[in-house]
Amino acid sequence: MSTRLLRKRPARIGPATLSAIVLLALAVGLGWAGIAALVATGSAAAPLTGTSTAEAAGGLHWNSALVIAVGVVLALLGLVALILGLSPGARRILGVSADGSDHIDDFEVAMPTSALSQIAAAAADGVDGVSGVKASSNAKSTIVTFSTPIRDSEPIRAEVEAAVKDRFAAISFDRTPAVKVQARRSQS
């Protein structure tokens, strides 16, 4: 199959929802002004003017600070939306290689980057002397930060790194993520 069943890149649901809401707000504002003008004059040929905002806008100059600011904001928002639409975005899953079986023609296995963090944190948590763990991952690497009450944290750091690397090695990732371990001394 050419198309993958699992989505690798973000679907941009947040920005799309926000844009849709902005479109709806514009529609409400425009519709409100239009209907108000239609009702006020009572004829279908009513113009939209007469509101104070329209007249105030007519008195502005192109080089006034307000107009320039609106232009800058519009251009920047447009640029952000364009980048969000064009850039593929961070990969949200990691491929795991797996043998299929006779019952399956096409087998696809993946693990979200959040699962990677949780596995790394659990592996680090099992090391003696570790009092707290945080892990964050992208598709290529995992950063594990652990806290320990021990003054010389280097031996524990090495042990944590070995534990996390062992755990990752036991999973047949297409590309095993790199592991970086940082120690933070906890106050105790």
Binding site: A11, R12, I13, P15, A16, S19, A20, L23, V70, G71, V72, V73, L74, A75, L76, L77, G78, L79, V80, A81, L82, I83, L84, G85, L86
Partner: peptide
């Protein structure tokens, strides 16, 4: 979503 964002982005950027 991506198509919509690209279209909206182009319009907003052109206006701005």
């Amino acid at each position: 979503n991506r198509t919509g964002l690209i279209i909206l982005g182009l319009i907003a950027m052109a206006l701005g």
